[in-house]
Each structure stands twice: as C-alpha cells, then as structure tokens.
Simulated scan of single mutants.
Amino acid sequence: MTIPVFYTISDNYTPYAAVSIKSLIDHADKNKDYTITLLVQDISDEHKKSLEDMSTDNVHVNIFHIDDEMVKPIHKGEENYLRGQFFTMSIFYRLFIPELFPQYDKAVYLDADTIINTDIADMYNIDLQDNMFASCPDLSIRFMPLLQEYIKKCQGIFPPEKYINNGVILFNMKEFRDKKFVDKFYYLMSKYHFDNPDPDQAYMNEICEDKILHLEKEWDAMPNENMDEIPNPKIVHYNLFFKPWHFKDVQYGDYFWKVAKTTPYYDELKKQLEDFTDEDRQHARDDLKKMADKVKSIEKEKYTWAKVKKTEDVRI
C-alpha cells in the first residue's frame, strides 16, 4: 500500500514545490511507501526532471498533466481571479483529484508553499469518518475584520471561524466521487459565477459545509503578524503574501531555509529574496489590503453565496 500525496503547481512554482517535497522526504518513514503526484498543465523538461529525480527507494515523485478538457468550463473571468488579482488555473486542479485518481479512496493534498515537519503518514491515518475532507480553519484571516465580514455577509458561514484553508487537505476521495462533487462544482460555477477572493477554497467550504473535519492548527501553521508562532507545527504553510523567499523576517521562515539549503534551488531562492525590493514588499502589503477591500464590492453582487443559500441548498 502506498500513501498518495498530491501537489498542484504551475511551472514557476517548481523551486518551492521542490523544497516542500524535500521536507516530506526528510520525515518519511523508511518502512512506508509514498507516491507524490504533481498536477500541472505546462512544465519545462528541466523542471520535470528535477522533480522526478527527487524520488527515493520509497518515495516516488511523478508529474501528471491535467487534461485541458477537464478545466475547460472554468473560464478566465474576474470572479475566478485569485485574491482578485490574477487568474491561475492551478488553484482549481485540487478539486479534480478524486475523479482523476479513482484507485485511491483517501489522499493528502499540499500547497507547494508548505514545509512538512512530521511523517505525512500521520495525517493520512487520521479517521475522516463520513466527512468529505479534513482541513484547518483559516487562521491567516482570523484577525482581518473585512475578511471576517466577507465570510459572514458573502459566504454566509457562521461562525466565520468555521471557514477552512484548503492548502492542506486530507481528502475522502471516495466520498467526493460518490457525492459527485465535480458535477456540483460545475453546476454552481456556470449558474452563478460567484465572485470570491479565493475561488477554489470558497467552493470547497460551501459545497462541503458541515461535512468537514477540522484539524488541529498544528497541521496548517500560517504566518500571522497577530499571533505568536505555533510551537512545533506539523506543517507550515506560507499562505497569502508573506513568503520567506520575499520577506527576510517572515514568521516560521527558518523552517523553509533549513530545508531549502539542502536542495539545488537554494541559490535561486536566495537571489529571489535579495532581488525582492522594499517597494515590492510594500506592494505585497498593499495587495493584502486590496483583497480585504474587495469584500465591499462583492457584497453588492447579484449573486453571493449568502444570497443564493436563502433559496437553494448549495451543499452536497
């Protein structure tokens, strides 16, 4: 038996994915078998080889090319822009993992901007019961009043602390297939064109609401200037804008650089940090504010999740 782990990346995210995978390998049990699959649409031959060459005797790293037809219904409209800024299809790939890999009834998904500090088998072995998936509440927005308002007024999720971050997921793959999650996703997306700063995450929160197992915060520790570091995080997730390859003093940054030093991408990552200017950092902070401010415009949309839920059950 193998433990399946998935990432979804675009080509430019290869260096960060390599660091994350290295951290997973460093903590993998030599007596267990792991299969890491990276879902991509386009990747250079050089990057593909560098990732696959990370394979060990018991950790197998594979590249899987996403079928253009599967993501064709996801159009490049502004409502599908990540954080209201730009369109990247890769954020949606995770929604199709259960359909694409019917051989697995359970699997782990990780964003590429993560560091694994424990055997990922410990997460895989968590009992999902009859829940659709397991994830942690989104602590990165816990202290952002406008985004808390967005979750209540636009998403209609109460209390907003229920709202999960889907950068770390334990999938009940069989339930996703049996309940036809993808069909529900296509239907809601085509009918309502919901505007969300986090499109993929919003759909998972809404469609699976009350069928989500909330994990302890150690499984998705995110930099947050309003909180102290979580001691001994099992997974660190550099969510939103504060990446260690852009900010020297980012919370949990030491975890990233300790692993990065052991990869072929270390010099490239250090150069990214050196080349990222104070002006760039200010833009990142401004972008965070813009994302929060977007809430005010979403509230005025004809269709928001909260409005639609008054007349239709969007849950699976």
Rank of each mutant, 00 (worst) to 15 (best):
C136L: 03
E149N: 11
K106F: 10
F87Y: 15
F276N: 14
G77D: 11
I230G: 07
H60N: 12
S135H: 03
E301A: 12
N117L: 03
L82W: 15
T2D: 09
M132N: 05
K289S: 01
I157D: 00
V182P: 02
F194K: 04
K309D: 00
Y255L: 13
F143M: 10
E52I: 06
F158P: 00
A306Q: 12
I151G: 08
K184C: 12
N172D: 08
I157P: 06
V71Y: 02
F171I: 02
I43C: 06
H75Q: 14
F101V: 09
I316H: 06
P197N: 09
Y203D: 12
C154M: 03
V259G: 00
P73I: 07
E209L: 11
F96V: 04
F185H: 05
P73H: 07
N165L: 05
K302N: 05
Y238L: 07
S297T: 15
E175P: 01
A17C: 15
K302W: 02
N117R: 01
N62R: 13
L288C: 09
D249N: 15
T14I: 01
Y124I: 09
D53F: 02
D113I: 11
Y186G: 03
P197I: 13
D11W: 03
F96S: 12
N239R: 02
Q272S: 06
V40Y: 04
I9W: 01
N62G: 01
E216K: 08
K296Y: 15
F87V: 05
V61P: 03
K30P: 09
L82Q: 12
H193D: 07
Y187H: 11
K310I: 01
L170M: 10
V19D: 06
R315S: 12
I116S: 07
